[in-house]
Design a binder for these strands. Structure first.
Length: 481
DNA sequence: TGAAATGTTGGGGCG
DNA sequence: ACGCCCCAACATTTC
């Protein structure tokens, strides 16, 4: 009797280092790859993510075809799509890589139970994290809530020797299985707003590995300094590829360490590599925190923040979203996000601090906006980042840490290259004033063609005022746990 | 993975 | 020569 297996793909759209796929190909005579587009109650993929997913699925489907298989596309509930398919195919095995987000865990658990009840063997694997979240615990048995001890605990026991290579070929079942096309999922925007995104990204496994290679060859050595200069993009830009599983953290880990072979511990390359791997560690940490505290996407980890006096101000929220706050570094970041689906991490921290501390608008508004506009929107990373920046989450920045957007701009974009790129109306301002046009002398503004409140806004709030207001608001919830 | 306020120090101008 | 003051420059603390 020949064995038929089904491999379910989700955010693991790659052939290499894909444990579920590798096991299915090894165990089964016939393998059916399927992608099920599930309807989600909340946190359904945003516009930019959907654009990415469309193209990633097209790429993945193409590369499966080269191995002889056809990616089946279906739409619906995970369990109730899978169950009839197993009986139709007489499949006795189902494979997938485990999900660790609340929705995914729930759906997978239900499907596993139902499949097992019908005698189907379910085999699941970890292809998206370096560790199983339930295996990284403090001495007292609880999850870590602070990054450094977390990373000290688990970065030292990562031992990756080799990764699974892509299968040479896949033999599909003989029966013809109905499938939608990728286009039928209607993931692409109806009006084409994605040109700016298209120009800078290549979704898919090939794009991911090329990006990793470029990062290692051209940027890794000076990453420790370059990573903070947003005009240079000396960063990996792997986040969307990692989110959709076009590359996995094990592959990144191995490649970075291979690039350091022969480099001494104190070399700049090795130092930079460790700082970069620590960012992979933050990704890991975020996923573990969401695993252990599964309501944090909607609820602050620190309970006292439930009573924080957030302001509701749609005008100011819109100004922030559109990059019209009057603080150039903030506006540049928000426009980069809108136009390219991505923002440099240094600038993410600045704009998040600005929304939650200067405007006192809830981190929920920020995480929702990022969710819709980022190509790398990831529930775990997005949640941790916003809770961290606003002070209510794991390893939160102390509440008094309020970024001064003027100083941050001058420190990390000293000649204003980043601001000039995304706020062209400020292009002619001298560097001295590029991060504080409201302070510039009249004649300087005039000769640069900048008219405050006409072609570039006045600051939405005064920094000194906003700082005092934020401190007072934070003081009002002090020790109210 | 801050910034502002406050404290300390030491060189130089000046009577 | 000496003390006094000013104020960068740097360090510490506070928010």
């Amino acid at each position: 009797m020949k064995t038929v297996g089904i491999v379910c793909f989700r955010n693991d759209l790659r052939l290499a280092d894909n444990l579920a796929l590798a096991a299915a190909v090894q165990d089964c005579d016939f393998v059916l790859p399927i992608f099920i587009w599930e309807a989600k109650d909340s946190w359904a993929e945003g516009g930019a993510s959907r654009w990415w997913l469309h193209h990633s699925l097209c790429e993945f489907s193409r590369s499966l075809k080269e191995l002889g298989a056809k990616l089946i596309i279906a739409k619906g509930n995970f369990k109730s799509t899978l169950l009839p398919l197993t009986s139709e195919l007489k499949a006795t095995r189902v494979y997938w890589n485990r999900r660790y987000d609340p929705f995914g865990r729930r759906e997978d658990a239900e499907a596993e139970k139902a499949l097992q009840a019908t005698g189907v063997l379910v085999k699941s694997f970890n292809s998206s994290l370096l560790h199983e979240p339930h295996l990284v615990l403090t001495k007292s048995g609880g999850p870590f809530k602070v990054f450094t001890p977390f990373w000290n605990n688990c970065s030292t026991r990562i031992d990756i020797e080799d990764i699974k290579r892509p299968p040479r070929s896949i033999t599909p079942p003989e029966a013809a299985i109905a499938s939608l096309s990728v286009g039928d999922l209607a993931l692409e925007p109806k009006i084409d707003w994605a040109s700016g995104i298209r120009a800078v990204w290549s979704p898919g496994e090939k794009g991911a590995s090329e990006q990793l290679e470029v990062f290692i060859d051209e940027m890794l050595e000076h990453y420790q300094y370059g990573r903070d200069i947003p005009s240079t993009d000396q960063v990996s830009r792997l986040s969307p590829h990692l989110h959709f599983g076009e590359i996995g953290p094990r592959q990144v880990w191995l490649a970075i360490n291979k690039a350091c072979v022969g480099a001494s511990k104190s070399s700049e390359l090795r130092k930079s590599a460790d700082i970069y791997l620590k960012e992979i560690g933050w990704r890991e940490f975020a996923h573990h925190v969401l695993f252990h505290f599964s309501d944090t996407a909607d609820t602050p980890l620190h309970a006292k923040f439930k009573s924080f006096p957030w302001r509701k101000d749609d005008m100011q929220l819109k100004a922030w979203q559109k990059g019209q706050t009057g603080y150039p570094i903030v506006d540049a970041g928000m426009r980069q996000l809108w136009q390219t689906g991505w923002m440099h991490n240094r600038v993410r921290m600045i704009v998040a601090s600005f929304l939650t501390k200067h405007l006192l608008i809830s981190w929920h508004e920020g995480s929702r906006w990022f969710w819709d506009t980022l190509v790398d929107a990831d529930l775990a990373n997005n949640t941790l980042g916003w809770q961290w920046a606003s002070g209510c989450g794991a390893d939160a920045a102390p509440y008094f840490r309020i970024f001064n957007p003027e100083l941050q701009g001058e420190k990390f974009d000293p000649d204003g290259t980043y601001v000039r790129r995304w706020c062209p109306e400020l292009n002619k301002l001298p560097s001295k004033w590029i991060h504080k046009p409201w302070k510039a002398p009249k004649d300087v503004l005039e000769s640069a063609g900048v008219e405050l409140a006409v072609n570039y806004p006045e600051p939405l709030v005064d920094h000194a005022f906003a700082r005092v207001r934020a401190l007072a608001a934070l003081d009002s919830i002090k020790s109210r746990d």
